[in-house]
Lab assay of single mutants.
Amino acid sequence: VTLFVALYDYEARTEDDLSFHKGSKFQILNSSEGDWWEARSLTTGETGYIPSNYVAPV
């Protein structure tokens, strides 16, 4: 499992996005959609889309 960590805070703009804070960790579920990845937050357990340029591999 590849884990990613948030580099910045992000406020969701749609109900499909995940809001998160810098330092939040994610499991990436689908990275084939270009700049928006489907991810599960390891902090909240919620699933949604995150901007790929806001995260980096742990």
Rank of each mutant, 00 (worst) to 15 (best):
V55I: 10
A56L: 08
F4M: 08
F4G: 03
Y8E: 07
S31V: 11
T43C: 12
E15N: 12
F26L: 08
V1M: 13
G23R: 02
Y54L: 11
I28M: 04
D35I: 10
L29T: 07
D9K: 04
G48M: 04
Y10Q: 01
L42R: 03
E38C: 15
G23L: 03
I50Q: 01
S32Y: 10
E15C: 14
A6G: 04
P57F: 06
T2A: 12
E33D: 15
L18I: 11
S19W: 03
L3Q: 07
G48D: 01
G48P: 00
T43D: 14
S32I: 10
K25N: 06
A6N: 00
G34E: 12
L42K: 03
Q27Y: 14
T47N: 05
T2S: 11
F20T: 00
R13F: 08
L18Y: 05
A39K: 00
T2Q: 13
V5D: 02
W36R: 14
K22T: 07
Q27H: 12
A6M: 02
G34D: 13
Y49F: 13
N53S: 14
E38K: 13
L42S: 04
V1H: 13
T43I: 10
Q27F: 14
A12G: 11
D35H: 10
K25P: 05
Y10R: 03
F4K: 01
D16Y: 15
F20S: 01
P57R: 08
S24N: 14
G34T: 13
R13E: 10
H21C: 14
E33N: 15
Q27N: 06
L42P: 04
D35E: 12
Y54D: 01
E11Q: 13
D9E: 06
T14S: 13
L7G: 01
V1S: 12
E38T: 11
I28K: 04
A6H: 01
E46G: 06
V58N: 05
F26T: 00
S24T: 15
W36T: 06
A56Y: 09
L42I: 12
G23V: 01
D9V: 03
G23C: 07
T14R: 15
A39E: 00
S24L: 05
A39D: 00
D16N: 15
A12Y: 02
S32G: 11
L18N: 01
S32D: 11
E46R: 11
E38S: 08
E33F: 12
R13G: 08
V5H: 05
V5E: 09
D17M: 14
E11N: 09
L29N: 05
F4H: 06
A12P: 04
V58R: 03
S24F: 11
T47M: 09
Q27K: 08
S52E: 03
Y49V: 07
S52D: 01
V55F: 09
R40Y: 14
H21N: 12
N30G: 09
W37L: 08
E11W: 09
N30H: 08
W36N: 05
E33R: 15
E38L: 15
D35W: 10
E38M: 15
P51Q: 05
I50F: 01
A56D: 04
K22A: 12
D16M: 14
S24D: 15
L29I: 11
F4I: 03
A6T: 02
P51S: 04
L29P: 04
P57S: 07
S52K: 14
R40F: 13
T14W: 14
T14Q: 10
S24W: 15
E46P: 01
S32K: 10
A6D: 00
Y10N: 02
I50G: 01
G48E: 01
E11Y: 09
L7N: 03
V55S: 01
D35N: 09
S19D: 04
T43P: 05
F26I: 04
W36P: 04
F20H: 00
G34K: 13
Y8G: 05
P57V: 08
F4D: 00
S41M: 11
G45S: 05
N30F: 07
Y49P: 02
P51M: 07
I28P: 03
T47H: 08
E46W: 06
V1Y: 14
Y49C: 11
L42E: 07
I28C: 04
V5L: 07
